[in-house]
């Protein structure tokens, strides 16, 4: 049953991608197709990565409200970008080899994620909300630092930073795409291999351990994957805080299963579908640029509040 819905979801995604590629195709077909294919690839990659990362994160954290984004990745990314521009100057950053910058950013975000989530792990699930709040406040602090550094920039360099402050699906480096795709592919495969153990981990630490699962190990592996997935997507297009929440919630709602072999691809495809369809609608049909990211923040925020209120209704 869930498999059938998964196939249906895949078909819808393929349809949306085709529409994105072929809608109103005129002029130099090959050139435009190439441009669109690049953008589509970025959307698919980011959507998949964020959706899967969120499902992984929610399972090991035992909480459906959390996303890696809420815990402050966006702020870290902006701070990182600003620090880079401040240290090297706007021109200097533009001259850096994109591959090296990208890999450095991924590595840094992975390390930061391990530190942050490692804390969460040691604190235990009882203190989860405290940990989230810690992440969020750290985010505020990082944004403050970024603001401080921006004060020290001149306006043209500020523009470079501002580009990184809002998620942009417009300008994606083609060379980065290949690396990102490779990294995401490996992470996704690893996540799927972990799926059966994640199903057990979803029962909670104590129960999973009585069933003979090395719970801590599974959590560690999952967090590693989450870090890579989030770092890759963040470095690729910038911060999208709430996309994961939307993707994971819709994925859970549609599949109605505990099985991660289904949930992971479902959330990934939902995230991708949301981005592709959203971008298609905004850019092609409504002719608006750069509003998708703001819309995601808005809708995702509403969803978060709705989830909290619903949770209260159940208790």
């Amino acid at each position: 049953m869930a498999e059938r819905r998964l196939i249906l979801l895949a078909l819808v995604l393929v349809g949306a991608s085709a529409a994105f590629l072929l809608w109103n195709l005129r002029g130099p077909t090959g050139f435009i197709l190439g441009l669109r294919a690049t953008k589509l690839a970025a959307l698919l990659l980011v959507g998949c990565a964020v959706g899967m990362a969120t499902v992984l994160f929610q399972t090991v954290a035992q909480n459906r409200l959390l996303t890696p984004g809420i815990v402050g990745f966006d702020a870290l990314f902006v701070t990182l970008q600003t620090a880079l521009v401040l240290g090297l100057g706007g021109l200097g950053v533009a001259q850096l080899p994109p591959l090296a910058t990208f890999l450095a950013e991924v590595a840094l975000l992975v390390v930061a994620a391990q530190v942050l989530f490692g804390l969460l792990l040691r604190r235990g699930a009882g203190d989860l909300i405290r940990m989230i709040l810690t992440g969020v406040i750290l985010g505020v602090m990082l944004r403050g630092l970024a603001g401080l550094m921006q004060r020290l920039l001149d306006p043209s360099e500020f523009a470079v930073v501002q580009q990184a402050m809002f998620a942009s699906f417009g300008a994606v480096d083609r060379g980065l795409l290949a690396i990102a795709a490779a990294l995401l592919g490996v992470a996704a495969l690893a996540a799927l291999r972990l799926a059966p153990r994640l199903d057990v981990a979803g029962l909670g630490r104590v129960r999973a351990r009585t069933l003979g699962l090395d719970h801590d190990r599974v959590v560690n592996q999952s967090l590693m994957l989450v870090s890579v997935l989030v770092a890759v997507s963040t470095a690729l297009v910038g911060p999208v805080t709430f996309l994961g929440l939307i993707a994971a919630s819709l994925g859970h709602a549609m599949m109605q299963t505990y099985r991660h072999a289904v949930l992971l691809p479902a959330a990934g495809m939902t995230g991708a579908l949301f981005l592709v369809a959203g971008q298609f609608l905004f850019e092609r049909v409504l002719g608006m640029q750069s509003t998708l990211a703001v819309l995601i923040e808005f809708l995702g925020g509403l969803l978060f509040l709705a989830l909290i209120l619903k949770r209260k209704g159940r208790t």
Partner: peptide, 12 residues
Amino acid sequence: TIFAIAGAAVFL
């Protein structure tokens, strides 16, 4: 900016 950094630290 100063208060965001210092205040966040105290909040933590």
